[in-house]
Each structure stands twice: as C-alpha cells, then as structure tokens.
C-alpha cells in the first residue's frame, strides 16, 4: 500500500471509526465488569462513579458459592453437550438430504423446515410438556439429546448450503463402487464439511446454553441450568438483589461460550466467509 498523506488520513479516519464502534460495543461489558468489582454500597451510592474504587474480587468469590457454580455448570454442560451432538448430527443429515437428493418433495420439505422457525413456541409449551411427561423424561438431562435429534432449522439450512458446494462427482464415484448412502455420508461427505460442522456445533451449543424455558419447565432446582439459576440465585436474606454479585455470576455464566468462541473463532469466521449462508 502506498503511503501518501491522503491514505494516512484515510486510514487514521478508518481506525478512529473502528475504535469508536468498538467502544460502543464494549460499553455494556465495561459496565458489567465495573459493577462486578464494586461493593453494593458503592453501586447504590447517590452519585455513583463510573469505575470501582478498587478492583475488588469479593463478589466473584461470593457469586461462586451463591450460584453453586460447580453443580450448575455440570448441569448446563451436560444438557448443552447432549443437545449439541444430537442437533448437529441430525441437522447435518437433513441438510445433506435437502442439498443432494433432488426429488420432487425436496422443495416442500425445505419450505417446511424454514416454516417451522415461525411457530410461536409459547403455543407448544403445554403440549410439549405433556408429551415429555408421558415419556417419563421430566427432570432428566437426556431429554436434551432427544430434543436435539429433531435438528434446528437454521443449522439444516447451513448444512444444506455447505453440502451444495461439494462437487457431485465425489459422490457419484463412490456410488458406482457400490457404497451405501449412509456410508457415503459418513465417510465421504461429512468430513468435507468440517468447518460447517464446527459452526453448527457452536451455534447449537450457544442456543442450548442460553435456553431458559426448557430447563425452567423440565428440571428441578438441583438439576436446572445456569440460564435459570442466574435469575434466582442473587438475592440476599433481605430479599434484595445483589447487583455486584449478579454481574460476577453473569461473568461465570458467559465464560464458557466466550472461551469456546475464542478457541473456534477461526472456523466460524472462515466458514461463514466461505459463503456458507446464501440467500
């Protein structure tokens, strides 16, 4: 790149803009961190300051016990991992079907998959509950596995796009060799959409990590997930809400998705930039 005064001004302007936007996005996070370091008295002072007087980690310690983090982390991980595995698996299969088998019903099923996104899910709560009850699955984490096997519309869509980019010749030659469809799928096609699989898994994990209604309905207080627990744990004996500890608790709650994101961000960015999602 040539370094003329014009390009310098241009890039200075660009950086100012980028950093300005970054600041706006980070304000709530700064707010969360700041509050999590403050004492309750500092938070509720009549003219509160922007930053804590000192970096005070007491809230993090207390939040740990109040949230009973170990137990609920286990619950949340158990449900999320089961859901992620099942949902990714099932979505990959459906996405593959929609991408590669051009039968007459294909369009109909594709529309059906997308339409299923539009069901106002509050309508399904009671009947879903009755069904789960009949199956004897209330208060069991394994419900998430079964629920995941239904796949998720957006992930199916994603897989459909990824599978569509693979040349047909690979499949054809395998078929000529007499390989069965399931074998072709698992040994040839699925390995080719690695980044799609990772992206889907991350999304599935994120959804189940933040799901509030399902654990609130189906799990008892000791088996429920952090998404529910975060809402009920942070009151003291006076029944006051403890904002500092709550924000520290929120930090614990969002840590796992954030870590996962940083570990896999390369795949997400790359995969999405490969044009995985297309209109």
């Amino acid at each position: 790149m040539k370094t003329t005064p014009k390009t310098i001004i241009q890039s200075a302007f660009s950086y100012a803009l980028l950093i300005g936007i970054l600041f706006v996005f980070f304000l709530p996070i700064i707010s969360m961190l700041s509050v999590s370091f403050k004492t309750e008295a500092e938070i509720f002072r009549s003219s509160p300051s922007l930053f804590p007087a000192s970096i005070n980690l007491d809230n993090y310690g207390r939040a740990l016990t109040r949230l009973n983090l170990g137990a609920y982390l286990y619950n949340t991980l158990a449900t999320s991992i089961m859901y992620t595995l099942a949902c990714t698996f099932s979505s990959a299969m459906a996405g593959y079907a929609l991408a590669r088998f051009n039968v007459r019903e294909n369009g109909f099923f594709f529309t059906l998959v997308l339409s299923s996104m539009m069901i106002p899910y509050i309508i399904t709560l009671i009947p879903f509950y009755l069904l789960v009850k009949d199956l004897g699955l209330t208060n069991r984490h394994v419900l998430w596995l079964l629920y995941g096997l239904g796949g998720a519309p957006f992930l199916i869509y994603l897989f459909r796009q990824f599978f569509a980019t693979i040349p047909a010749s690979l499949e054809e030659s395998a078929r000529m060799d007499g390989a069965k469809p399931l074998r072709i799928f698992f040994s040839i096609m699925l390995p080719l959409v690695k980044s799609g699989t990772i992206i889907s898994a991350i999304f599935a994990f994120q959804w189940s990590w933040q799901n509030y209604l399902m654990p609130a309905l189906f799990l008892s207080s000791l088996k429920t997930t952090l998404a529910v627990q975060i809402n009920v744990a942070f009151q003291d004996i006076q029944q006051n809400i403890l904002l500092g500890e709550l924000m520290a608790g929120v930090m614990y709650y969002i840590a796992i998705p954030l870590i996962l994101f940083f570990v896999f961000q390369r795949y997400i960015m790359q995969g999405m930039l490969e044009g995985g999602v297309k209109g």
């Binding site: 698996f89 099932s90 979505s91 299969m93 459906a94 593959y96 079907a97 929609l98 088998f101 039968v103 019903e105 294909n106 099923f109 059906l112 998959v113 299923s116 069901i119 309508i123 399904t124 009671i126 009947p127 879903f128 009755l130 069904l131 629920y147 096997l149 239904g150 796949g151 199916i156 469809p181 399931l182 799928f185």
Partner: peptide, 26 residues
C-alpha cells in the same frame, strides 16, 4: 427418494413429535 427420506427421517420425526403434534394439540 429412499435415501432422501432416510436422511430426513430424524428431522421429520422430531418435527412431528416436538412441533407438529404440539401445535395441532394447541
């Protein structure tokens, strides 16, 4: 067609059980 339904089967089952039956119940 057989393969298509084979691969769609999980979704169809999930859709029927978790969404279709509940909204029809509703």
């Amino acid at each position: 067609r057989k393969s298509f339904y084979l691969f769609m089967s999980l979704w169809i089952l999930g859709f029927a059980v978790f969404q279709l039956i509940p909204i029809l119940w509703g």
